[in-house]
Simulated scan of single mutants.
Amino acid sequence: MLAVSELYIYPVKSLGGISLPAASLTDRGFEYDRRWMLVDENNRFLSQREVPLMACLHVALHNGRLVVRNINKPDLFYQIPLQPLTTETTTVTVWDDECRAQWVSAEADAWFSEQLDLSCRLVYMPDGSHRPVDVNYAHNKEITSFSDGYPLLMIGQASLDDLNSRLSSPLPMNRFRPNIVFTGGLPFQEDDLKQFSIGDIRFSGVKLCARCVMTTIDQQTAVKAKEPLKTLSTYRMKENKIHFGQNLLYHGSGTIRVGDAITIDHNIH
């Protein structure tokens, strides 16, 4: 039996994730997932690809606020209200997409700029800002948040176990930033999960996730290495891209919990 074993959200794109016992689906992924983002002076998104130190900013949800801590300075934290303090909007860029975003506060901009030692600003995606997923993979004009391209990413624990059996030092799941992790399957079974259900919510696996240098960054130290891309390239390379994980779209709403069964629909092709 396949079952949900871990659930994660990443409220601020490219900062640390939060492990949850249950996660509620919205119109663009899990609640709070990647609804905030840091942008540079050109309003283009920032990520660990260019700023590895972002890995050291860890996020928690506490008393209706996001609490961001710099793990290199444990006593230092910053609280972000779940609704921005400004009403000012702007256009921001995520890869090839442009969408509307709301400035959070000048205070937030100053705090993050100091922690990362670069000029940046924090933005929020309001409910009225709609960023469509790639039309080549969309089923019903789905939208996503500030994620790289899709509202959810799923990885099987067996896939990580398979990878770790080939590495000299095993890596944690946080290198791959999934939203849903499941147990009980074969290695890379998520590649073939085209249609499945969790409770009353139906999911579609639409596109394998191509992996980048972010997977080589230690999420505690921000130090880059060659793994896991070096090893993955030997057996997970297709069309010059290294794949690990499956991007998902879904139909329905509700809450997913750790322990929920995953039911594969064999009748839909």
Rank of each mutant, 00 (worst) to 15 (best):
L208S: 15
L248T: 02
N247F: 02
E142S: 02
I256L: 14
P151Y: 09
P172A: 14
Q189N: 03
R236L: 00
V213F: 11
T216S: 09
H251M: 15
S145D: 09
C212H: 05
L163T: 03
E190K: 05
L167S: 03
L208A: 15
M154I: 00
T216K: 12
K230I: 11
T231A: 07
A158L: 09
S159L: 06
F176N: 05
L193P: 02
C212D: 04
M173W: 07
I217L: 09
R175V: 03
G199D: 05
T216N: 07
S197P: 05
T183G: 14
N240V: 07
S145N: 09
L186E: 06
K238W: 04
A158E: 00
S233D: 08
H139N: 14
R202S: 03
S145A: 06
R257A: 15
V213N: 11
D191S: 01
G184F: 02
Y150H: 06
F176I: 03
E142N: 02
P170L: 11
Y150P: 08
F146G: 04
L232S: 00
E239N: 14
D161G: 03
I180H: 04
I198H: 04
V181A: 15
R202M: 09
C209Q: 05
L208I: 13
F196I: 00
T234I: 04
K224W: 15
G156V: 05
T234P: 08
T231L: 11
N240R: 15
P172L: 06
S165L: 04
H139D: 11
G205V: 01
H251V: 12
Q195Y: 10
C209E: 02
L208T: 06
P170A: 14
G259V: 10
R177K: 11
L229I: 04
N240K: 13
T215P: 08
G199R: 05
G254S: 13
P187L: 01
L248M: 01
L208E: 02
G149C: 09
N247G: 00
L152M: 12
M154T: 01
G184D: 00
T231W: 00
V258D: 03
L248N: 00
Y250T: 10
S145I: 10
Y235R: 01
E142V: 03
L248F: 10
P228N: 13
N174Y: 07
F176R: 06
F244P: 09
V213Y: 13
M154H: 12
V181Q: 13
Y150T: 06
F182P: 06
R211D: 12
K224S: 14
H251W: 14
D162W: 02
G245K: 05
D200Y: 03
Q195H: 15
K241N: 12
F188A: 00
T221Y: 08
D161C: 07
F244K: 07
G254C: 08
R166I: 10
F244S: 01
M173E: 11
L171H: 13
D200E: 07
K230P: 08
A222D: 11
E190W: 00
T221N: 12
K238M: 13
